[in-house]
Amino acid sequence: MASWVGFRVDAAATLGGGHVMRCLTLARTFRSLAHHCVFLCSEETIEVIPDDLWDGFDVRTVSAGLPAETEERFDLLVFDHYGLSAPDERDWRNRAGTLMVIDDLADRPHDCDLLLDQTYGVRAADYEALLPDGCRLLLGSHYALLREEFATHRQASLERRLSDPAGGRVLVSLGMTDVSGIAGRVCNLLTAIGGLQRVDVVLGHKAPSYGRIQEICALDARFQLHSDVRNMAELMLLADVGIGAGGTTTWERCAMGLPSLVVVVADNQIKIADLMNKAGAIGLLGDARTDTDQHLSDQLTRFLSDTERLRAFGRKSADLCDGAGARRVVDDVLQLVAARERANGYV
């Protein structure tokens, strides 16, 4: 039987669009199984996320933290929002049969029936005092929410990397909203590094660095700007190394076995970047908020000149995520929803 699934999620210029993008991935998987999905978002979210990226989903604006101005009942309501916690989630209890939370901070209590944290190295003990009894946990990068295209292109990407890198093709993707203009800073540094054959830059057209990247592309034929792309897996397949932030695209690069150099741009990225760096799965360039351009430049030069180390990053990261996490999550969630509905006498 088809279910109604709601997503309470926001994006912002300072927050980025990662929360919305991973919820869209989950929604597409639900929709492929004939379930109806509704997004409940702030007005700023509608401004930040381009219309075409909503993929035809039903999107409604709501006041921050408050139930939607509708009496509609959801079979499942998903929260992916750092600004909401147990009291806010509890307000929605009479609107949904099952409540699910997506989190990666483990820094506040939740009132939910299921919690997903796709962070590498996360433990059940991290949430022990934050969840109600009986809450089901889906933990680790095995459950990373990636679009189907990454699983589709994964094998070809891994096979390509069995040989030495073809040489010098870099993919720069530092977040849709380009927090603090980090994309412009990184590309400025790359212009001075020799040996690069091509630099593909993925950036939202509203990003602060957009104009600067256009200028770089006009002056340096190696640089190519891609705005609001829908073929990220193909770009990763062609790249020899990826430069990105420590957010959602971390798992995309892992699924493709793409050697990654990571710049931290937000507090919630520090832990995952540190764990993956210690595991030898990424090269950590530094923190964009505190490290100087000289430090970032030195790190870029050091990593980009070490081909064997880059290949090792790719091999290790490919073991952490296979790109099939979204379907695993949906299968587990639907089983829980069905069980709760039977227990409550709805079916």
Rank of each mutant, 00 (worst) to 15 (best):
V347F: 04
L66M: 04
E44G: 13
V78Q: 09
H142K: 09
Q299V: 14
A339F: 05
P67F: 03
V48H: 10
M100P: 11
L84N: 13
M236D: 06
G244H: 08
L162Q: 15
L275I: 12
V186M: 05
T25R: 03
V122G: 07
Y346A: 04
V329E: 08
L237S: 01
L174S: 06
I216P: 01
P165L: 03
L53C: 13
S173I: 12
G56M: 03
G204R: 00
L162F: 13
V38T: 14
D103P: 11
R73T: 12
G242T: 00
L99C: 07
S297D: 05
G168I: 03
G184V: 09
L139I: 08
L285W: 05
H226T: 11
H153Y: 04
I49M: 02
T70G: 00
G194V: 00
L285K: 09
A166E: 13
L76R: 00
C217M: 00
S42M: 11
R315C: 08
L275W: 13
S305T: 14
L320F: 13
S317F: 06
T301L: 08
T61H: 00
A338D: 15
D88V: 11
G280F: 06
D104L: 04
H19T: 00
F74I: 00
T250R: 14
D55E: 15
S305A: 15
D228L: 15
G283R: 09
P132S: 10
W4L: 14
I216Y: 03
D133I: 07
V265D: 02
D10C: 14
P87H: 07
A2C: 12
I49V: 12
I270S: 12
N277A: 15
D274F: 13
L158T: 11
A318T: 06
D75N: 13
A144T: 04
M1D: 15
C23L: 01
R8K: 12
R123A: 14
D58N: 15
L237D: 04
A312K: 11
L304C: 09
L300N: 04
R328S: 02
V333Q: 13
S32V: 08
F30D: 02
H205K: 08
H153W: 10
A339T: 04
T25D: 04
G97T: 10
T290P: 05
A343M: 08
E148M: 01
C112D: 06
D298F: 07
H205Q: 14
A106W: 11
R8T: 02
A281F: 11
M256A: 02
A68T: 01
A221H: 13
G204E: 10
F303V: 07
A2Q: 15
L40C: 03
H81S: 03
S141D: 10
N231K: 06
C37W: 05
Q335S: 11
S157N: 07
Y120W: 09
M21V: 01
G97A: 12
L285C: 11
A207G: 03
P208K: 14
T70V: 00
I102N: 03
V330D: 14
D228M: 15
D267M: 05
S317V: 04
G323E: 05
D332V: 03
T177H: 02
A106F: 09
V179E: 04
L203F: 10
K316Y: 09
D52T: 07
S32K: 11
L285N: 11
